[in-house]
């Protein structure tokens, strides 16, 4: 780790626990000294291409052996209990993967049977999970005929069918239309909130992470750059309020400056006012009322996921340079 945020390392019972995990492929080091804990709930695993996310997932599933370091998943030691880990993990790969000539429901039944569900029960469970995933009669078609969205649902159902306590979802919303994307994120929320699943989402779609994740781990150049709760990461360094007004923002900016309030005009006429206490909020309301200014929105300023991500990646690049 270069300068990773370490607040998540001290929690009592992490679902995933990695200590100094390194993975090298001949001369190339894919992962360097990864030390991180993943807590119950939804965690976003982010990183640019080649950051080592897929390698990390393969190590978690015991498909790749770490060059050094140790770790556990659900209390099971990686390397020593790989089959037990895979029994308890539902993995949704990013890659399009399917068994030709099988229908959707047969594919999910097959996945369930590989996880040792009895044959008939696997079929019943496959239908139940496909219902949950919003698959209709298309479940009886062969998977080769499926659209991208339907294949995503199928992979999700296959990952979930054996009711694993930990789900690793690689790009779960990739290729989905806006409605389907929203539905998929809702399912993820329901599973985490109502069924206490731990979910690790590996994605490039940053708003998805912002919408469903509690914690964020950012990998860059094979290292953990950030491992923190989203709430903490979203807090700006200097507390501020974002204000939108009807009419030209310069007028209200002038009024605030006259009151010795530090203000700047951001993108799209957004006023960024320093301070986020209740008193600061009341003062802005009062000044707007006094000068007949209509406030369209007044929200605490947050770091965007993009800025958090870019900052983390840039930080690691500087550190490794």
């Amino acid at each position: 780790m270069t300068e990773p945020e370490k607040d998540s390392l001290s929690s009592p019972s992490p679902v995933i626990r990695l200590r100094g995990v390194t993975k090298s492929f001949r001369n190339f080091q894919a992962l360097r000294d990864i030390t991180v804990d993943i807590q119950p709930g939804v965690t976003g695993l982010l990183g640019p291409n080649g950051a080592g996310k897929s390698t990390l997932i393969k190590i978690l599933l015991g498909l790749l052996k770490a060059s050094s370091g140790s770790g556990s998943v659900l209390g099971l030691e990686i390397g020593a209990a790989n089959l037990e880990i895979r029994q308890k993990v539902g993995y949704m790969p990013e890659d399009d993967c399917y068994l030709p000539q099988l229908s959707g429901v047969e594919s999910v039944q097959f996945a369930a049977r590989l996880n040792c569900l009895p044959s008939i029960e696997a079929l019943r469970r496959a239908h139940e999970i496909l219902d949950f995933c919003g698959a209709g009669q298309e479940r009886y078609r062969t998977v080769e005929t499926y659209s991208t969205g339907m294949r995503q649902k199928l992979k999700f159902a296959q990952a979930l069918v054996h009711d694993p306590p930990l789900l690793i979802l690689d790009e779960p919303t990739s290729g989905l239309d806006p409605d389907e994307r929203k539905a998929m994120l809702n399912r993820i929320k329901v599973l985490a909130r109502d069924h206490q699943k731990t979910i690790l989402i590996c994605t490039h779609i940053l708003p998805d992470v912002q919408q469903v994740s509690h914690d964020v781990v950012i990998l860059a150049a094979g290292q953990v750059s950030v491992a923190k709760s989203l709430a903490e990461l979203s807090k700006p360094l200097v507390p501020a309020l974002n204000v939108r007004v009807n009419g030209p923002p310069e007028v209200f900016a002038g009024i605030l400056r006259a009151e010795q309030i530090d203000v700047s005009i951001g993108a799209f006429g957004m006023l960024v006012v320093s301070g986020d206490s209740d008193a600061d909020v009341q003062r802005i309301w009062r000044l707007a009322a006094q000068h007949n200014i209509v406030l369209r929105s007044l929200t605490p300023a947050k770091n965007s996921m993009e800025s958090i991500f870019l900052e983390a990646v840039k930080g690691t690049q500087h550190a490794t340079a």
Binding site: L61, L63, L83, R86, V89, P93, S107, L114, N115, Q158
Partner: peptide, 8 residues
């Protein structure tokens, strides 16, 4: 991936 992400 379907096979080997499971205990096979």
């Amino acid at each position: 991936l379907i096979y080997f992400s499971r205990p096979i």
